[in-house]
Every structure is written in C-alpha cells, then in structure tokens.
Amino acid sequence: MASYLKFPKVSNWAWKVWMRDWNVFMKTYRVNFILPFLEPILYLLALGFGLGGFVGPIDGIPYAVFLAPGLISISIMNSAFFECTYGSYVRMYYQKTFDAIIATPLNLDEVIAGEIFWGATRSFINASFMLIVVIAFGLVSLPMALIIIPFSFIAGLLFSALAMCFTSISPNINALNYPIFLLITPMFLFSGTFFPISALPQPIQYASFATLPLVHVVEISRALTLGRWSDLLPLNLIWIIIVSFLLFVISINLMKRRLIA
C-alpha cells in the first residue's frame, strides 16, 4: 500500500505534456468550443424551463436557478473524467504517446501530471463557457459566481486524478464503462444536481457526502451562483483538495506499475 503513496518526481517539465494536449485541442477548436455552449442551453431549455414549469421553487429558488450550478458541476466532472479516461487511454495504449515522451528527458510522473492538469483545464474551459450561458440567462448572482472559473480547475483536478486511477488499472478500453456506470452515473443523479440531497433518506445523505466527490463540487458551485455563504464550504473545499492530492499521487504510482515495472 505504501508504495502507491510514494511521492512523484514532478518538475515544471510537465507543462510540455500539457502543451502537447493543448496544441491538439486547438487544432479542432471550433468543435471543442461549440459543445460547452450548446450543452447547457439544451439542458436549461429542457429541464430548467420545460420540466421546471412543473416543479415548484426549491427553498424559494426557481428551479432553473437551482439547476444551473448542478449543470456546471456535471460539466466539470464529465470533461475531466472523459479526458483522462478515454482520452488518456487512447494516448497511452493506442497512440503510444506516453512511450514516445518518456524516451525524452521527461519521466512518466511528469507525463501523467501533465495529463491530469490538462484534464482539469478541460473542466476549466467548459465551466467558463457554461458560466457565460447561465449569466446570459440571468440565473446566477454576480460577481460571486465568477469564482467558479478558478474553482472549476481545482474541482477538475479531482476528477482527472480519479479518472487516471481507473485508466491505469483498466485491462482494456471497454473496462472504462464500469466506473462510468457505477460511479459517474450515480454521481450525476444523486449529488444534489437535479434535486437537493436533503430529499434523500438520511443514511444515503451521509453516504453521498462521504463517497461522492461531486456532492462537494455541487455544494460549492451552488453557494457561488446563489451568492450564499455557508460555514460548511471550507470543509467541502478541504475535502476536494485532500482527495485530489491523494488520487494524484496514487494514479501516478499505479501508472508506473502498469507502464514501467
């Protein structure tokens, strides 16, 4: 167990890996930027305004306003998680990109760190674009909601490091379906995204808080978009930072075991 917590040897050379992914991303920037605009509009129209017409206000908040931070949180989760599962798996296994890079002065620790930072950057990009949309719909309170922009990177790290752990132990690319169905889908539904967690039975509430990372991200995002401070927020943030850091270290050690035993 202790071997999975060995501190990685990461220098600022990791940014070269980040830069590679950024260059690829920018080659198809049109597609990449349309999606984060389109996705929240569709969800807001269907759920916020369509379904929301049948749903009463939650804690005195109109449903679309309640939903907006949930959608941003889901986008933070999905963009980092998919980038560092399918994206990283393809680069690692099919394209042998990692092998090519570790033949240069970079080491595997730096490659994986660069990938995780890139996954978090995808969260940052998508969340920032979604924020523009929800601001345009007048669903958030400014300027506090703008804190979501830096926050999306920190929360992105949580999901990209988590994703990298699964990537490192998946025997093949199809096996990545397991964490998506068993972890991402429940998080998508039960993290206070579409309805408040308080609607769930008490034991499930506790279980959600303890095990579903998205819960903490939704809590903070909603506080930011509503402009409502809560004393629990620092705890949510500390949870995210500690777990992200642990997953970051574990994922690098798992990857080393897989690729350079």
């Binding site: 260059n23 690829v24 080659k27 394209q95 042998k96 990109t97 092998d99 090519a100 033949a103 002065p105």
Partner: peptide
C-alpha cells in the same frame, strides 16, 4: 542521460494528432 540519447523504438509511436 536521456538528454543525450536518440531513440528509434521498435513500435512506431509517432503522434497521429499532428
């Protein structure tokens, strides 16, 4: 050491994205 090595690997690992 790696700074001074040039490597042609057995398997092609050119970057297909570029």
């Amino acid at each position: 050491i790696k700074r001074n090595l040039g490597v042609v690997p057995q398997e092609n690992n050119l970057d297909p994205d570029f």
